[in-house]
Nucleic acid binder design. Structure first.
Length: 134
DNA sequence: GCCAACGTTGGC
DNA sequence: GCCAACGTTGGC
């Protein structure tokens, strides 16, 4: 089981949109590194959903409900299907992640522009723990 | 609104 | 193959 983080601009497509839609094809990723990570995703993997822009916080957990397949709009690229699992009890802001030593190696901090990224299980668990203890 | 960091493109 | 120029992302 692998863990991931998916970024989205909430004005474009938010966690609430995902909940409303029940599932969503995660498309429009046009970055080779991100594409490669998408190709590694397996059905059942979990992904943190992170809001960029003015939000800058992890808001929920989604499941990869369908592994990567070529984007019908441009077959050079991949899409996956994601399904919401649960909203975090409290969102975990980037500022908290930045100030916590447990996350110094997190891709979110080291490569802030990557919109699809792997997350260590320990990081994933810590984010969930922080979200519940507030 | 600015700009640092990063990725891509294209001339050489 | 190098790298300057340019474009994009996303935090501040």
């Amino acid at each position: 089981m692998n863990y991931w983080l998916l970024k989205t601009e909430p004005f474009t497509y938010s966690w609430n949109d995902l909940v409303r839609d029940k599932k969503s094809v995660w498309d429009g990723i046009r970055n080779y590194q991100a594409r490669n990570y998408m190709a590694e995703m397996k059905k059942g993997d979990l992904a943190l959903i992170y809001h960029t822009g003015s939000a800058k916080e992890v808001v929920g957990i989604a499941r990869i409900s369908k592994a990567a397949w070529p984007d019908p709009a441009d077959k050079e690229w991949n899409v996956v299907e994601v399904t919401p699992v649960n909203k975090l009890k409290n969102p975990v802001p980037l500022s908290v992640i930045k100030s916590n030593m447990a996350f110094t190696d997190m891709v979110l901090l080291k490569n802030s522009r990557l919109s699809v990224q792997p997350v260590m299980r320990a990081e994933f668990d810590r984010i969930v723990a922080i979200s519940e203890n507030k």
